[in-house]
């Protein structure tokens, strides 16, 4: 179900498969949360009760035109519940968004984001996730839009068995385009697991900066954390910075990280062309091959479709 937020107009109330979705003023009346938590009216509040599994993805689509816009999403997935949510951004000016996800025991949250803002817009996002016992959260983000975009992500694995898997793809192709990722994953408890795979393709004079930090607290024994960040540069002037960090205070942990910045393999390009594919087609094949593994991580068909449409349009511009 798609909820379009046009020019900042948040719908007051929605019912999706028996679950209520509220804009904040109404959520306050529900008194599930302390009234003081939120200060503005631009909040979408989503509460998934215990044992409720929403089959269809929820889709927040932001299309606001001219002025700067602030938005706040609060998602509470109660025990044993399941939710798939896609945030999609197609704005013209400036977007600031904060998303908070609370995943209770055994909850499954699939969170995806398509940041496809206008090429002159700015996008500033902060995502924080808190996970309890045995909960699993999947994060997938495609960031191809905006002139300048910043993504702050903070993951807290509070209880035993919590797992968070983060994937992202960022194809940048405009001279002034700039993207920053700052990701913090905090392992607070034993047997928690995190995995990060982020890939960027940078053309023209675009710039990306990735900092991924895994922090393992003293109590967090037997955890697993993997982090990788790979880039393909299509022009000599593009820049990709990558800084994986690990800070470990516990014993018996399995942590890996890797980062690369590379170019198209000229031998592969020549091989394809020598068989008759033109340069453009060959480049398309090789860049798609680079992105294939991270894009394959998205299993939801509806979201996959939105991603493919966005990419197809983006590559044709």
């Amino acid at each position: 179900m798609t909820i379009t937020i046009l020019n900042g107009k948040i719908p007051e109330k929605f019912e999706v498969e028996g679950v209520m979705l509220y804009a904040l003023p109404r959520a306050r009346e529900q008194s599930i949360f302390p009234k003081s938590v939120f200060s503005d009216n631009n909040t979408l509040f989503l509460y998934i009760p215990k044992n409720v599994r929403l089959e269809k993805p929820l889709h927040f689509l932001y299309q606001n035109n001219s002025k700067q816009y602030f938005s706040h999403h609060v998602i509470i997935a109660n025990e044993n519940s399941e939710l798939t949510l896609l945030e999609e951004y197609q704005n013209n000016h400036a977007m600031n968004v904060t998303t908070e996800i609370y995943a209770s025991k055994n909850a499954r949250v699939h969170f995806a984001k398509i940041q496809n803002e206008n090429s002159s817009a700015t996008h500033d996002a902060s995502l924080s996730i808190h996970q309890q016992e045995e909960s699993v959260v999947n994060v997938f983000s495609l960031s191809n839009g905006a002139r300048s975009a910043r993504e702050l992500i903070k993951i807290n694995l509070h209880e035993r068995g919590a797992e968070c898997i983060l994937n992202g793809f960022y194809p940048l192709k405009n001279d002034e385009q700039k993207l920053d990722y700052f990701i913090d994953v905090n392992h607070h408890a034993k047997h928690t697991r995190s995995e990060m795979l982020y890939k960027g393709i940078l053309d023209k004079k675009s710039k990306s900066n990735f900092r991924g930090k895994v922090f393992v607290h003293q109590a967090a024994k037997h955890i697993t954390a993997h982090q990788s960040n790979h880039h393909l540069l299509l022009s000599k002037e593009a820049e990709a910075g990558s800084k994986p960090e690990l800070e470990i205070y516990a014993d018996d942990v399995k942590c890996t990280h890797g980062a690369t910045v590379g170019q198209i393999d000229p031998d592969a390009l020549f091989y394809l062309r020598a068989r008759g594919l033109d340069e453009k087609e060959s480049m398309k094949l090789l860049t798609a091959a680079f992105a294939a593994d991270v894009l394959d991580r998205m299993k939801n068909n509806f979201i996959k479709n939105q991603i493919n449409m966005t990419l197809a349009e983006y590559c044709h511009e």
């Binding site: 394809l272 008759g276 087609e281 593994d293």
Partner: peptide
């Protein structure tokens, strides 16, 4: 012959032949 990870052999051959 160069190895090209991520590019399917059959897809490549079909694209080459048709091109």
């Amino acid at each position: 012959p160069v190895e090209i990870p991520g590019v399917n052999n059959m897809y490549f051959l079909k694209a080459a032949l048709n091109s």
